[in-house]
């Protein structure tokens, strides 16, 4: 779980001293690919005048037959977010099926921090509909083609090596000839 605290002061429009959270849910991937990591980031902004406490993020919007859990927690608890601060939480999932998928909101409950200590329910923003691409299609576009380039290098090798060897053999032959000649002259 990754927590990032970053202070950000905002003008609070509410007069009563209670915490208020805005929750954004974002999918950080540009391409959602089968069997590759899908990173979901939840950012909680406290824009109220008081600290929000006992925050529980629970996201049940990921079907278990479409997504495999790879890292992070889909049900996370954060003790406290001070006013004007924000906290982000990341979850990594792995899609196992291809096709369109509607990414919907996560549910959040928290205590607003005022005397009533009531539990406030909230829903995050929705990332919307996305399409899970098959790994083969993704690979076609973005793979580095290392094997192909290796094969290409192997195939071009004879056309370079054969003339080089021919030149090398003739060169060494004449070098030995000239050195013999020199020796003969010196003698």
């Amino acid at each position: 779980m990754m927590l990032v605290f970053c202070f950000q002061t905002l003008k609070a429009e509410e007069s009563d001293a209670s915490g208020r959270l805005l929750v954004s849910k974002q999918i950080l991937n540009k391409y959602i690919v089968q069997d590759m990591d899908l990173i979901v980031k939840y950012t909680l902004y406290n824009i109220g005048n008081n600290a929000a406490t006992k925050i529980v993020i629970s996201d049940t919007s990921f079907n278990s037959d479409t997504f495999e859990h790879a890292g992070g927690q889909l049900k996370a608890t954060i003790d406290r977010i001070p006013p004007g601060a924000n906290v982000s939480h990341t979850v990594v999932l792995r899609p196992v099926r291809i096709g369109p998928y509607n990414f919907t909101a996560a549910k959040i409950t928290y205590e607003t921090g005022d005397e009533s200590s009531k539990v406030q329910e909230a829903v995050s923003s929705e990332p919307g509909e996305g399409y899970i691409v098959a790994f083969r299609d993704y690979d076609k576009k973005f793979s580095p083609h290392l094997l192909d380039w290796g094969a290409f290098a192997m195939m071009t090798l004879p056309s370079l090596a054969i003339p080089f060897l021919l030149w090398w053999s003739s060169k060494s032959k004449y070098e030995t000839l000239s050195s013999k000649h020199k020796k003969n002259q010196k003698d």
């Binding site: 974002q26 329910e121 909230a122 829903v123 929705e126």
Partner: peptide, 15 residues
């Protein structure tokens, strides 16, 4: 277009 229902006492965030 969001078409998101918000129950009494609930909060929702739109981006």
């Amino acid at each position: 277009a969001y078409e998101r229902p918000v129950k009494p006492g609930q909060e929702a965030t739109l981006s």
